[in-house]
Design a protein around this nucleic acid. Sequence first.
DNA 1: CTGTTAGCGCATTCAT
DNA 2: ATGAATGCGCTAACAG
Lengths: 333, 333
Amino acid sequence: MATIYEVSKLAGVSLATVSRVINNNTPVREATRIKVLEAMDKLGYHPNSVAQSLASSRSNSIGIVVSELNGPFFGTLLSDIETAFRKAGKHVIIAAGHSDEKLEKESISFLQSRNCDALILHVEAVSDDYLTELADKDVPFVLLNRFVPSLYQRCITLNNQHGGYLATQHLLQLGHTNIGYISGPMWKHDAEQRYNGHLRALAEFAINSSQSVFYEGDYHEKGGADGMTQLLNTDPQITAVVCANDEMAAGAMTAARELGRSLPEQLSVVGFDNVNFSHYMCPKLTTVDYPIGGMGQMASRWVLKNVYQQKLGDIQNVFEPRLIQRDSAAAAK
Amino acid sequence: MATIYEVSKLAGVSLATVSRVINNNTPVREATRIKVLEAMDKLGYHPNSVAQSLASSRSNSIGIVVSELNGPFFGTLLSDIETAFRKAGKHVIIAAGHSDEKLEKESISFLQSRNCDALILHVEAVSDDYLTELADKDVPFVLLNRFVPSLYQRCITLNNQHGGYLATQHLLQLGHTNIGYISGPMWKHDAEQRYNGHLRALAEFAINSSQSVFYEGDYHEKGGADGMTQLLNTDPQITAVVCANDEMAAGAMTAARELGRSLPEQLSVVGFDNVNFSHYMCPKLTTVDYPIGGMGQMASRWVLKNVYQQKLGDIQNVFEPRLIQRDSAAAAK
DNA sequence: CTGTTAGCGCATTCAT
DNA sequence: ATGAATGCGCTAACAG
């Protein structure tokens, strides 16, 4: 691999000048710039990004921690983040936190030791205190889907409460009054908030929430299936169920069908997230859209703006969910 | 951030000794090792990986090029690759090639400029010649789902031909004789091979392949839907359709239903890939399993073994697909 | 087993 | 506008 030194020799200029045309940050006479560019070209020169990093104390890399790499959700997120940074010549290093406190911390320190210029964190298990302390260290970071009061400027969140509200409101408007709820693990903030939204909708329609059956699931297919089974056993009169995410909705729908319910005639189901396979399900899932891609782009913008000083538009900290009506929720009889 | 120099001062040893206990590659007296470790601890020292890379000309990073970051397929792949390397203290840099020659080349050179120690490539658009030339350069790489004769030791492939065979054989054994085929873009090797397997099965059962209707799709849902529509128009007698991937199967099934066919009673469908949502579909999709996770692990092993000299088991270059029987394929009347 | 020394490839003052 | 000099933090001979 050719070095900047060889380029400078071939171009007959100093090493510093070559650096200048590379970084394009100091005036260089057009004639010499061309000489340098030609030399670089002739040698097939590519700057060594590692050396650049060491000299500039900038790695041009952004670390991302997500819960899981597989799953429909993070694919969309990563895709949009990668596109945004790639355009800016930065690269993305990924690590999985698996919703586990120890693994999340390990991921973060792993990324720190990699000298990332910034971190984008979708973490669930570490505490607010831990994050607040982390903010005092030197690595800048943004939080995705997590609200920490003291760090509010760097939180990009979804209005989960309103999402939960929308799902239940939709069923209520369809005339359902006996609505079950399958939540995510309640220690997760989003699960709690989505459920709160559900309760608010119920209250607004003057439905006594104790009438409503609740099951705490795991955000996975199995939890949805178990939840539906239990809900239907507890109260066979249920005509609709809200699931706190699409995966559970998938499991719930399968279970309901196995228990002899026809969908959506006898039982309506609403999901949450609008993952890419939600319209493959049948009936096609009515769900609440989680604009994860847009949120990833916003997180990227935060980094580009605050860490790399690019002049970009304002940061939108909270995103609004939106109901996607498909075929799994029908009017109550 | 503390440096190795500060550690050496605090521990009262030389800078080289500190480096030795970090890298743990040269004998160091236990007593001094402890002194050093304590000093590192007291200073909260973490080696600067950028400086390590520059000095050792090793970045401990592996570049990955996949077609898309979203989609069910690559999530599984990336997840397994990340896990494997993370365990080894390496990190993964990802880039999307979007099945486009220009973008794939850009991704590769981007990763090269990042001084990756090795590349794992799932590329479709670049030519064999390009890859052969790349092999003469200094970056080692493995190829996923791509066979280049001159590079056979570094190709991790699926026996796509056999997969196509399995899908069609299954339908044939169920008594179907009028089988349509919706392929992927035929310029992609896997699409071509899967189709060849289909033809082989047909031949084996003495079915004249001209009887069989063919549609060239795009590996996406839309292509599947269009394909099914056209197939059913061309030959309404078709009782079964093989789709070259699950996404197209999803589109095809929707289209078939819209055309009034009941599944699987009037029409059987078999997919390919066994992506994570294939069992959410209804009827649950009968498909051919593509062990992408295992192949990713194998690619990781190749890198760990050939680039980082870890002693590991043998490399398995070709993986076998396997039929997953679910509910979308039924016996012919 | 440990210390000394010399770069790795580049960005960045400070001069000119 | 350009060149010379210095150092980023660490690894890797080479001595001892």
